[in-house]
């Protein structure tokens, strides 16, 4: 199923380009930063603002 979807879409979205290491670093960096931001900000907001509700 997923392979079929993949095949259908490839024709529409340009020739495939090899996955670059720098893409891994950027994606991983952003996701890690996002998770850290989510946790830190959630703690701050929950302890301060949301504690009042």
């Amino acid at each position: 199923m997923f392979e079929l979807i993949k095949l259908l879409i490839i024709n529409q979205t340009g020739e495939q380009e090899p996955w670059d290491k720098i893409e891994s670093k950027l994606v991983l960096g952003s996701i890690i930063a996002g998770i850290i931001a989510l946790i830190l900000l959630a703690v701050v907001i929950n302890v301060t603002i949301l504690a009042k509700y």
């Binding site: 997923f2 979807i5 993949k6 879409i9 490839i10 979205t13 340009g14 020739e15 495939q16 380009e17 996955w19 893409e23 950027l26 994606v27 991983l28 952003s30 996701i31 930063a33 996002g34 998770i35 931001a37 989510l38």
Partner: peptide, 20 residues
């Protein structure tokens, strides 16, 4: 921002075969 974009980018690149 920090989660949506990289996840969507990763899935489209790796799973759906989009170019950059």
């Amino acid at each position: 921002y920090l989660l949506y974009w990289p996840i969507a980018y990763y899935l489209t690149r790796r799973f759906f075969g989009f170019n950059r």
